[in-house]
């Protein structure tokens, strides 16, 4: 009969075996992606993972035969602008909802909550009609402007800014700060963790978005990565190496941003879940 400590050790072994097995399953596709990007055309299916000789052939093809760099720059521009605009409007609005009493505040909150329940795809047809009438089809503006507000972001910032002490704001007023400076010099610095979390959420949303850009972008020059890569699948279906290299480079910016902001992100996500 096993003693208590032997039983405990066996349990530990089983636990780690399960965890490591899951880790392998979860990480294998990404490792395979990295390996596939760095194999020459003859080695791609010859070796399951890494080939003995690494090749930059796929990346060269990506930048010479395909306007991949253009797609990448477009995505950086669109996602970067979207993050800045969403961040400013959401935090400013969130500040007002958290720290002021004013007429219509309740109605705004109710309408916002109600629209969060509705799938965005419902809006696509009328939104397209609207953008068409504003003559913004096939433009960056048409891509960015409808996404300039984030109801979710507004709630996130309201939630975190509720914790700013009123005394602090009152002290600022006595020192002669106007209300915008209270927002800029007090509320924003205090909300830094939430800003980090929201930057990542907002960047990922814009970087990975597909349906709306697919609807309104027509000219290849303006394609973002998701649209460009989807087109590549059709045009270069057999060029698996270049496709994988393109996928790897498309994923990398998000991964880098995640490592820079992960602390804020995980705690923001968890806080949202517990409160929600």
């Amino acid at each position: 009969m096993p003693t208590n400590s032997v039983k405990k050790q066996l349990l530990q072994v089983a636990l780690y075996t399960a965890l490591i097995a899951c880790t392998i399953v979860m990480l294998t596709p990404m490792v395979w992606l990295i390996a596939a990007s760095m194999k020459g055309p003859d080695d791609l299916f010859h070796y399951i993972f890494f080939a003995p000789r690494l090749s930059l052939h796929n990346f060269r093809q990506l930048f010479s035969d395909i306007p991949f760099l253009r797609f990448l720059m477009n995505s950086v521009f669109v996602a970067g602008t979207t993050v800045l605009v969403q961040l400013f409007f959401s935090s400013l609005g969130g500040f007002a909802l958290a720290k002021y009493e004013f007429r219509g505040k309740k109605i705004i909150m109710i309408v916002m909550l109600a629209t969060m329940m509705i799938p965005v795809q419902v809006l696509m047809a009328p939104l397209y009609e609207l953008i068409y009438r504003m003559r913004l089809v096939d433009s960056y503006l048409g891509l960015i402007v409808p996404g300039a507000v984030s109801v979710f972001g507004m709630f996130l910032f309201r939630q975190s800014m509720l914790q700013i002490p009123d005394d602090l704001l009152q002290a600022g007023r006595i020192d002669g700060c106007n209300e915008f400076r209270l927002y800029w010099n007090i509320a924003i610095p205090i909300s830094r963790p939430m800003i980090g979390a929201f930057c990542l959420i907002s960047f990922m949303g814009s970087w990975n978005s597909f349906l709306w850009p697919q609807i309104i972008l027509h000219t290849q020059e303006r394609f973002t990565l998701t649209i460009g890569l989807n087109q590549m699948v059709g045009l270069y279906a057999q060029e698996y190496g270049a496709l994988m290299a393109g996928t790897l480079l498309s994923v990398l910016p998000v991964v880098i941003l995640f490592f820079l902001l992960q602390k804020e992100f995980i705690s923001g996500l968890a806080a949202g879940a517990i409160k929600g």
Binding site: M26, L27, P29, M30, L33, M204, W207, N208, F210, T226, L229, N230, V233, L243, M244, G246, T247, S250, V251, V254, V255, F258
Partner: peptide, 14 residues
Amino acid sequence: SPHLVGQVFVAVLF
């Protein structure tokens, strides 16, 4: 970590 990869990129990979 797979969640960091957007749906379109996951789709191309898979």
